[in-house]
Amino acid sequence: MLHIANLHVSVADQTILDGLDLDVPSGEVHAIMGPNGSGKTTLSNVLSGRDGYHITGTVTFDGVDLLPLTPEDRASAGVFLAFQHPVEIPGVGNMYFLRTAVNSVRAHRGLPELGAGEFLGVAKEHMARLAMDPAFLSRSVNAGFSGGEKKRNEILQMSLLEPRLAILDETDSGLDIDALRVVAQGIERLRSPDRSMLIITHHTQLLDDVRPDRVHVLQGGRIVRSGGPELAHELEAAGYENLPSEVSV
């Protein structure tokens, strides 16, 4: 499980996360909702190991301290981040990129490398479920992809990499209804007893299709409320401003 305790994060003396506590047990899907600027993207960056932050507090995953690990070591340990804005890498074929990523992680897990043919078969299977055109594989990584295509590509990578902790940073933003459904189904398929998922969003729509076990409200750099899936709808009705704050203990 993911365990976060008293996490403080700042950039150039500006505090972004201010004593955040969160536990996501194995097999559970948790949603984090919050207004713009509440620190949602910072949280996903810090969990996946991006540098440039001053960090204190505890972040462990299955008892392993994540904070000293490089991004690639965290990825090998099973941490996956679906990016809010997936970056374009011109000239690097998507298929080549995906296979390299999968084989890097497999090597860490002591699994044999997948050959090009073998990988192609697996990738096409996953792509069919995500209603992706196989032509995607021969294009450069995210280059010239529409917003929806980029997000599907993230979900494709997630399903190929089979992470143990998946963080989805606003994967639903900018998607039309159909794309949203495909993405939601993709996430739902990955729900598994030995996988923790953290869905960061500020819409409730995705949470209708992917029912979270818990919903947390992030505001001012800390979790101000936690509840069941109904909390998402409460939020939608009341807005962050008028959300009655829980009595903190």
Binding site: V87, I89, G91, V92, A101, H108, S140
Partner: peptide, 22 residues
Amino acid sequence: YCRQRGLSEEDASTMIVNGFCR
């Protein structure tokens, strides 16, 4: 992005440079 997918920093930069030259 590449490192989050498990590539070392060096593999990532080689891949990006090779893409640039493709």
